[in-house]
């Protein structure tokens, strides 16, 4: 079971140093390309959202008809009723205060309102508070948990951190293999067991990480729908067991949300929060969905910091959430 211990001691060092040395230079280039990539990823969102907005805004005045059109627009972007009402109310207030007569002014006002709504969610994940920093990952089936873990591992490695993956999805067929292949691609150790209890696998992983001085543990869990109460119970137990392995952990509980999902995302956030105290969100598949509006609904009704968003299939396509960029890319 502890066979992996034999080969690894030298391992964390080498990729770590290389990554650390290389980090500053590409970081600069990446900031630029990142914005482009986000834009490209959200291009479809913009085509739909922005395109429609233009026609709506070209009318020029804030009247009831415009508000009604905007309501429809926001709703069809998965923004949801509550957040839509809020945004329109904001827009109405702004219209009263300032003179919003040009389409650009209205668009700017809506963008500002959206930015104000989303800005509080923009909180980067600080992984320096603990060592090992234990990150537990949860979500519904097919949200992209395992893929996100692969991307996260790469992301942290690029920052010069050592990473260890725990294959806590012991239920789905070949989930373990999927994580192991990701681990190989990233040169990261994966702790897995033949079968058995997800909590036990993660417990082992935390112990191994401590023994080897690993910086970050990424713990995968099986996908589950919030309605499956026994499985929600199980994931609550996983959290408790992590606390047993490290009383201060888990230091971050990430809920992975598929951006294609509609209003149910809210239910998911609430249900998982009840079970495992979600401390951050990862929004995946933003390149495919035409709208990222659910973010606004989350900001309104159950605000949780959005730690990362996934805008592509590439291993580099998972990045921290930036409200300004997000809104900008949406409205440009």
């Amino acid at each position: 079971m502890f066979g992996f211990l034999k080969k690894s001691p030298a391992e964390p060092d080498s990729p770590l140093n290389v990554a650390a040395a290389e980090a500053p230079a590409p970081a600069q280039a990446q900031t630029l390309s990142w914005r482009d990539r986000l834009k490209a990823g959200l291009a479809r969102t913009r085509a739909n959202f922005g395109g429609k907005l233009k026609t709506v805004f070209s009318r020029g005045k804030v009247d009831d008809e415009l508000l009604e059109d905007l309501e429809t627009l926001l709703l069809t972007s998965d923004v949801g009723m509550e957040a839509t009402r809020h945004l329109l109310h904001e827009l109405g207030t702004r219209a009263k205060h300032g003179r919003l007569e040009t389409p650009e002014a209205i668009q700017q006002a809506l963008a500002d309102a959206l930015y104000e709504l989303l800005q509080p969610l923009e909180k980067a994940l600080d992984v320096h508070t603990h060592r090992p920093f234990i990150i537990m990952i949860a979500g519904v089936n097919g949200a992209g948990k395992t893929t996100s873990i692969g991307k996260l591992a790469k992301y942290f490695q690029a920052q010069g951190k050592s990473v260890l993956l725990a294959a806590g999805d012991t239920f789905r067929a070949a989930a373990r293999e999927q994580l192991q292949i990701w681990g190989e691609r990233n040169g990261v150790t994966v702790i897995a067991q033949e079968s058995g209890d997800p909590a036990a696998v993660i417990f082992d992983a935390v112990a191994a990480a401590k023994a080897r001085g690993i910086d970050i543990v990424l713990a995968d869990t099986a996908g589950r729908l919030p309605t499956q109460l026994n499985l929600m119970e199980e994931i609550a137990k996983v959290r408790r067991v992590i606390q047993k392995a490290d009383p201060s952990g888990p230091h971050e509980t990430l809920l992975v949300l598929d951006a294609n999902i509609g209003q149910n995302a809210l239910q998911q956030v609430k249900a998982f929060d009840r079970a495992i105290e979600v401390s951050g969100l990862v929004l995946t598949k933003l390149d495919g969905t035409a709208k990222g509006g659910i973010v606004a609904a989350i900001a309104r009704q159950c605000p949780k910091p959005i730690r990362f968003i996934g805008v592509g299939e590439g291993i580099d396509d998972l990045r921290p959430f930036d409200a300004r960029d997000f809104v900008g890319a949406l409205f440009e």
Binding site: T76, G142, N260, G262, A290
Partner: peptide
């Protein structure tokens, strides 16, 4: 199709 899909289901 995932039953949880949002508005984008129609485009997909």
């Amino acid at each position: 199709v995932d039953a949880m899909l949002g508005q984008d289901a129609v485009n997909t």
